[in-house]
Design a protein around this nucleic acid. Structure first.
Length: 608
DNA sequence: ATGACGTCG
DNA sequence: AAAACGACGTCAT
């Protein structure tokens, strides 16, 4: 049973001292995973499921990390609840009036003229697999390796959900069939489905592989059709032609359509009429958690002040800004009123903000192995950047420690980067810094992300009728050279331990070869983008740097090789500079906000 | 700007 | 024994 509240190592990092025994309840709820609200779980005994998950997890590093998070969240919501009590003793008439004014203002923006629908495939990945192997329809089955991405409805009866660790799922249902995911197959199927969706709204918006928003107002007009009939026909058309069942929500805006598509899942639809009363009524009893954007954490925080449904927001409107911030208040106000966006547009019109790659692996502490992982990530990243036709002005390294703690470090190279060699060159110093900050660092994940993107697409060149050749922008090196480059990169670190001079020569050669060669680009380099010569400082020695006219700078390579040598020769006897030590020491002590400090409340903002 | 964190599918 | 990945967004500093 749930008796013991685990043996807490209570040391000085816990200023508040006290610890509720019922912490386990929230923790267990947390462990149930993020998709508790998904369909197919209604008949499941969640108590029992939660016990099993808890027992399967107990003591693991993952569990300990979740426990830590849960503790912090609990502290935070205690502060929120206490603050709310304090606020309510004050005169809130000003806040009340402001809230009401905002609500009135929002009300004027209400648009009930559009039919927006959200289409959602039922257990999509699992359904696609079942097409190939119909015998799986009757047995519990899930897709995904370490973590499940989807499971069929038979599996859901056992309490299995997407996002669940597969070994936990096996505990809940030993006969569960696990399939590896096959994204090509799923995207191919998704393309078939989208072809049909396009007939109903050519400007539909793919929200993900298996979801889409459509505005069918025009379609209904032109065909003199009721939206429900239109969606009925859309769904049967999809089912007949692709053998995939989909559910749909029909509503005056995207927010409500999204919620509605879940209501009669699987293979069903639900409509909220385009009338104010229908909308208000629908929201009134709707649990906040169902709204896209309110997750497990915010749900708990809202619950702690007595808000469970969207209707509960109204009576609390006067304190929301002070407790959660202006943006959160505005978002909640829209939830209460059931407002949402009505303009649906193709996802291609959105500009991408970042490109990233990351992988999880067995715990690694060995420095060489970590570099190999970083190199691999850099290569993956280069592929992704090539495919998406971007370079990154800023580069971010992400690691997850063996404790599941996640850290990120970012840097702004002197020029936008896209080649594996450069990605590696600029990421490695960040990794090295982390290794210094965290003695004995062991990782279970490593990833890279590029943001501040610069497009390498050759756009706008065809106003004289020139067809833009869709040639991939990276034409730098013939294949064999790439191999050589990687090999040399390995050699780099090894050689660094021996002779600086020789190494520098090698590096110079490498740089000459690897850096963007002007002549091989026949057309204008990268169309419209004019990269400003960023000012930048070396992540190792912090000296200000200037990029040369090829866009790069050998200083980092140089500094890096010195660094590597120092590490190799003096490793045990630490030359580690004091600041790093200070950071390392302070890391573990969480910023326990001491008494006098006011208002540590976290604010959040949602889209739009 | 940078890093932590929340959220979604 | 064992808990993903990629993308987006905020906030505090």
């Amino acid at each position: 049973m749930a008796g013991e509240s685990t043996d807490r190592v209570v040391d000085e990092d816990n200023g508040s001292g006290h610890d509720k025994d019922n912490d386990n309840d929230t923790l267990k709820y947390q462990l149930l995973g993020p998709s508790l609200t998904k369909a197919g779980q209604d008949a499941v005994d969640q108590q029992k499921v939660s016990e099993i998950i808890y027992n399967a997890s107990k003591g693991s590093k993952f569990f300990n990390h979740e426990q830590e998070r849960d503790r912090n969240q609990t502290l935070k919501i205690e502060r929120i609840a206490a603050e709310k009590v304090r606020l309510e003793k004050l005169d809130l008439s000003y806040d009340l009036r402001r809230a009401d004014e905002y609500l009135a203002e929002l009300e004027l923006t209400r648009d009930l003229s559009q039919y927006v629908i959200h289409v959602d495939c039922d257990a999509f990945f699992a359904a696609v697999e079942e097409l190939d192997r119909p015998e799986l329809k009757t047995v519990p089955m899930a897709v995904g390796k370490g973590v499940l991405t989807t499971c069929n409805y038979v599996a859901r009866k056992f309490g299995i959900r997407s996002g669940m660790a597969s070994f936990v799922a096996k505990k809940l249902c030993p006969q569960l069939v696990l399939l590896p995911s096959n994204y090509e197959k799923y995207t191919a199927k998704a393309t078939e489905i989208r072809k049909i969706l396009a007939q109903y709204d050519p400007l539909f918006e793919s929200a993900s592989c298996d979801e889409a928003y459509l505005n069918i107002t025009a379609y209904c007009d032109e065909n003199q059709m009721d939206p429900e009939d239109a969606v009925q026909s859309l769904r049967s058309e999809v089912l007949e032609n692709t053998k995939i069942s989909v559910s749909a929500g029909i509503a005056p805006n995207a927010k409500i359509a999204k919620i509605s598509s879940n209501i009669n899942k699987p293979n069903g639809q639900f409509r909220v009429a385009n009338e104010r009363t229908a909308v208000m009524e629908f929201m009134q009893s709707l649990p906040c958690r169902k709204v896209n954007g309110i997750g497990r954490v915010f749900e708990r925080e809202l619950d702690s002040i007595g808000i469970k449904t969207c209707g509960d927001i109204y009576p609390h409107r006067a304190v929301l800004t002070k407790l959660f911030g202006e943006k959160a208040f505005q978002f909640l106000a829209q939830c209460y009123l059931g407002l949402g966006r009505t303009n649906i547009e193709p996802v291609e019109t959105h500009e991408r903000k970042s490109v990233s790659t990351e992988t999880t692996f067995h715990e690694i502490g060995d420095k060489e192995e970590l570099r190999a992982k970083l190199r691999w990530a850099a290569e993956e990243m280069e592929k992704d950047l090539t495919r998406t036709q971007f370079k990154g002005r800023t580069l971010c390294l992400k690691v997850k420690l063996h404790t599941f703690e996640v850290l990120t470090r970012q840097t702004a190279p002197p020029r936008a980067v896209s080649q594996a060699k450069d990605l590696y060159t600029y990421a490695l110093p960040m990794l090295i810094k982390l290794e210094k900050e965290i003695p004995g660092m062991k990782l279970r994940l490593l990833g890279l992300r590029c943001s501040n993107l610069v497009t390498t697409k050759k756009t706008g060149l065809n106003f004289f009728g020139f067809t833009t050749q869709p040639k991939p922008p990276t034409v730098e090196l013939p294949e064999p050279n790439k191999e050589h480059e990687i090999g040399a990169e390995e050699a780099f670190e090894a050689a660094a331990r021996q002779e600086v001079q020789d190494e520098m020569n090698d590096l110079e050669q490498l740089s000459q070869e690897a850096v963007i060669p002007g002549p091989s680009a026949p057309t204008i380099e990268t169309g419209p983008v004019e990269e400003p010569p960023a000012q930048w400082e070396c992540p190792i020695c912090s000296k200000p740097q200037v990029a040369d006219d090829r866009g790069f700078n050998d200083h980092v390579d140089f500094c890096l090789s010195r660094q590597t040598i120092r590490e190799a020769t003096q490793d045990t006897h630490s030359v580690v500079d004091e600041p790093s030590l200070a950071i390392a020491a302070s890391r573990k002590r969480k910023p326990v906000n001491t008494g006098g400090q006011e208002d540590p409340r976290q604010k959040r903002l949602f889209f739009r």
